[in-house]
Design a protein around this nucleic acid. Sequence first.
DNA 1: CTAATAAGTTAGACAAAACTAACAAATAGA
DNA 2: TCTATTTGTTAGTTTTGTCTAACTTATTAG
Lengths: 218, 218
Amino acid sequence: MASQSEENYLKALFHLSSGKDEVNVSELSATLGVSKPSANSMVKNLQQQGLVNYQKYKPLTLTEEGKKAAALVVRKHRLTEMYLVEKMGFGWEEVHEIAEQVEHIDSPDFFARMDEILEFPTEDPHGSPIPDAEGKVKRQLYKPLSKCNAGEKVRLGALSASSSEFLNFLNTRDISLGMWMTIQAVEAFDGSMIVSYDGHMRETLSKSVCDRLLVEEE
Amino acid sequence: MASQSEENYLKALFHLSSGKDEVNVSELSATLGVSKPSANSMVKNLQQQGLVNYQKYKPLTLTEEGKKAAALVVRKHRLTEMYLVEKMGFGWEEVHEIAEQVEHIDSPDFFARMDEILEFPTEDPHGSPIPDAEGKVKRQLYKPLSKCNAGEKVRLGALSASSSEFLNFLNTRDISLGMWMTIQAVEAFDGSMIVSYDGHMRETLSKSVCDRLLVEEE
DNA sequence: CTAATAAGTTAGACAAAACTAACAAATAGA
DNA sequence: TCTATTTGTTAGTTTTGTCTAACTTATTAG
């Protein structure tokens, strides 16, 4: 089994390479909050285990085996978040830290039971897909709100980053997953948007917020 | 916060000193499956932190602070076992290994929520008391079945050791916690007992089994 | 195209937690 | 009491995962 540290690196690589495919050591070290030499040496270690493709001074990719291993860590994380929200009554902004720890538990039975109890969910509370037990991930159809145009009606499907500050920001504006919103206007000069939804007729969202809201049209 | 290793040592000390009060390094190393030098150096470390009383070549005891810290680890373990059995449908013989991992999670909220959901249980699925959030443990009134006499009627309250082999042994004989049994006879020469309960009129239990069944008269 | 900056690497150190080998103290048996 | 065994300790090594300092390769701006 992979150590907790190895699992964290795999998970980071999984996130960084979604929709980008090539990752470099600096990004990796930055997302994990470790020094570049630390990331560098762990990358070599994972390469030895056949989990990443790596050559000196070249960008990294996960191998097929590495992708599967990483997806299974993400699966454990997202199942846990779902469980904490649905079965233990936590708010979606509280669960990340706990899930960061629970995800390292080594017990297929434990996560299988969670999966059953949740009736085999395919998305976590933030709308991200939960990889299946074979590490296969349903492709996401979401695009950032910032890529949409005025007049479109879209459904909020997921968040691309979910710091608790961000989640609180959304909570204070009654923005929640699954909700529909209509784009009233797009400010050309700064990319901010004016949207309407449920009880809010004209809410302004900055470009950086719009980048983080992943939506689908239907 | 204590590391996982430190928590494991504290827990072992807690168990070893229950009803004995003095522990030596060899026992500690044996229960944890580590070498004596490893145990020795961890003991020094815990002493530095004010969690154990220790002098060269003398037996060890937990300090008050150490007892509390240890009890809180045991609390996390037993709450987890209870949760796994009551809320996730695991059998009592399956939960130990998972709880060994979950107990190291550092999130007061997580365990507080478990406690609430379970409606503040005072005993785990094996009948052992769950220390409260301040680390106070309710004294147990149980004594081993082997100390009882023929003719007595007793209630099975807890187990003193709970390997999965032992739990399976009990399962195959329909022996479960909370159950009443009557002692039909005690074999003087080997300490084995003939007991009756529920669907079983004459079941023979060896001395070593009777030592591990903790009972109360009422 | 060259120089400055960014990214990647190597070397060497450290802390935690384990180990083995070897020695010292305590205890128990004859 | 004296020796043998058990128990405890010290010293030194290993592994994992981190770090800093210093150096090398790549990339980017003028």
